[in-house]
Write a protein that binds this DNA or RNA. Structure first.
Lengths: 329, 329
DNA sequence: TCTAGCACTCACAAACTCTGAGTGACAAAT
DNA sequence: ATTTGTCACTCAGAGTTTGTGAGTGCTAGA
């Protein structure tokens, strides 16, 4: 698609821009490529014509376009191997047997966030993949009880409830027994529905005040189903990037993180390492998201790195590959 | 301490500044006070001498100092009654019997954050006030188990554990039984210690692999004790205030929220409505925090509103008073 | 004790200037 | 047919200048 010198120029411009965050001029490239600046200018003009580069104003240097980045990650970039030192840091985490997997992932993403100055996101398995394992209740005091829901993947949610004095604990016990008998194994996001059509009619017959109990469990479950198991590391790292230099952009991105809008950008996709650049993210024009799923036994999740479009693609991809293989072993 | 006209001038300046966020000049005050601007200037000079006002530069209008705000909230401000409409919004939440208390508080703070454009914080009871109610374990699959810890106030924490194949479930059961027998009622932040000195010696005798089990529970508990039950509403609201107009200030405050530094500012103090202005907060020079504890039955917590020093004190205090009385009934 | 008037100050915005890094174009050199 | 050197041109950004208006303090007279 592109000539080999064109590719070289594109690659060098992108790599230079990633380092400096400033538009790249022809002279800085011609030093690296052993030809004159005029030659480079011709190449650059051509690359701009084809849509791989952009100018910020008529006499400025060039900046990669999204199409340029895309070409770079698809054709020019090679994942960079980590330094031995960095590798060691991550490996010691995974060789530490006292750590649980989820803690090890958090810890390693903390390190990665620090190494890269980008923000990481961990997204656990969605509620549809979790199945009900057990419901239990525990009376606390007076008319307070706590309802506890556990899934087969070890997620736990609870809901504190005030119950009416004239509901006996026995009745509640009967209800939980029934739920345990009939609904264990049901995917969490289907539980609410089954609760309504399978459990409610039954308890309606022999439990006084069944409405109250039913409502309590119903709200506990629906809250569970909506909960997403998302967790940020180094949320403010990305603000250190020079592209976030004005108040509005910062407010904008902070807001989007707060609202967890990012969840849409990292939900679906294949099993490899996926790169979304700028508008491809459907999250924010100014960021790139690199993500990958991991799967170990029947447990899975997604980890994502959020940085500027001018992200160090080779480094991050290298890191994620390494991390993924570590997790899965 | 201050003459009555001085007080009037101070009050008007503060109220004007709260509205406009711009230094207040003498003319805008003299219109309200039916005397000439020169007179006001004299009063202002005097108030500045005494430390209640400040200038941003030699010929600028005046801005309240922390001492000025302090005098205002202590002597001049009257809590403002809410509008009927706002009151209604909050009351319907508390009259909705299907909502649990904690949900009602969250919901009402959402409304308050929206009404005021400030950030709210909810801090639940600290771990030292929570006592162990029950420990339980649930085997999931293969060698995975989940340990669940419940406190008397209905907090629940869990920890997923991978156990060594040669630990039998029986042994784990014995351990949890022992913990339940000996440690129920112990404040959460003392459990780790007791676990070490009272439980460990016993299980050491008759449980093989007791180290592993002990470590698992130890880490579960210590994580629990450190967890603080803090929850922000409208975290980015405060960024809309005009005082947060430069990148560094925003990064700074976002960072502080992220690190939950605020917890130190809202931990202790009496039962009323407490106001901390600027450096009094020990959180951030540029903010005011207004907080209050609530207590209902043996459940308690703290709610706080974080805004600029130029916060609408009368409105927020009015709101919090109203909210507190609603919660406690 | 208050007020009117005046000289003075200074932040802020708009207008202007300078400079350097960059471009495109084109003719000469390879 | 490319590549190169050269030159006129462009423009963002930084620095400087200027004008304006909102503010002050001070003083003398009501």
């Amino acid at each position: 698609m592109l000539g080999s010198r064109e590719e070289n120029v594109l690659r060098l411009i992108i790599e230079e821009y990633i380092k400096t965050a400033k538009p790249v001029g022809s002279t800085s490239i011609c030093k690296l490529l052993d030809c004159s600046s005029a030659t480079i200018r011709n190449e650059m003009a051509e690359l701009e014509n084809k849509g791989y580069l952009e100018k910020t104003h008529i006499s400025s240097g060039r900046v990669p376009s999204e199409k340029g980045y895309r070409y770079y990650v698809d054709n020019l970039m090679k994942p960079k191997n980590m330094t031995g030192e960095d590798m060691l840091k991550l490996q010691t985490i995974f060789h530490n047997n006292t750590l649980q997997l989820s803690d090890a992932i958090s810890k390693s993403l903390e390190i990665i966030s620090e190494m890269t100055n980008y923000t990481s996101v961990i997204l656990g398995s969605s509620s549809s993949e979790n199945k009900l394992k057990q419901v239990s209740i525990l009376p606390l005091e007076e008319n307070k009880i706590v309802a506890i829901v556990v899934t087969d993947k070890g997620h736990v949610e609870h809901k504190n409830l005030l119950i009416n004095e004239n509901i006996s604990l026995d009745e509640i016990k009967q209800t939980t027994d029934l739920i345990n008998k009939m609904l264990v194994g049901t995917p969490i996001d289907e539980v609410s529905e089954k609760l309504e059509f399978e459990i409610k009619p039954i308890i309606g017959k022999y439990v006084k005040q069944h409405e109250v109990i039913y409502n309590a469990f119903y709200s506990a479950f629906s809250e569970f189903a909506n909960r997403n198991n998302m967790h940020f590391v180094g949320k403010t790292n990305i603000l250190r990037q020079p592209e976030f230099d004005n108040v509005d952009k910062i407010k904008n991105i902070v807001n989007k993180f707060e609202n967890k809008d990012i969840i849409n950008s990292i939900k679906e996709d294949d099993n490899g390492i996926n790169i979304y650049i700028g508008s491809e993210t459907e999250f924010d024009e100014d960021v790139t998201i690199i993500k990958t799923k991991y799967e170990i036994g029947n447990e899975n999740g997604t980890i994502a790195i959020v940085g500027p479009k001018r992200m160090e693609y080779d480094k991050v991809v290298g890191l994620l590959e390494f991390l993924k293989s570590n997790i899965e072993n």
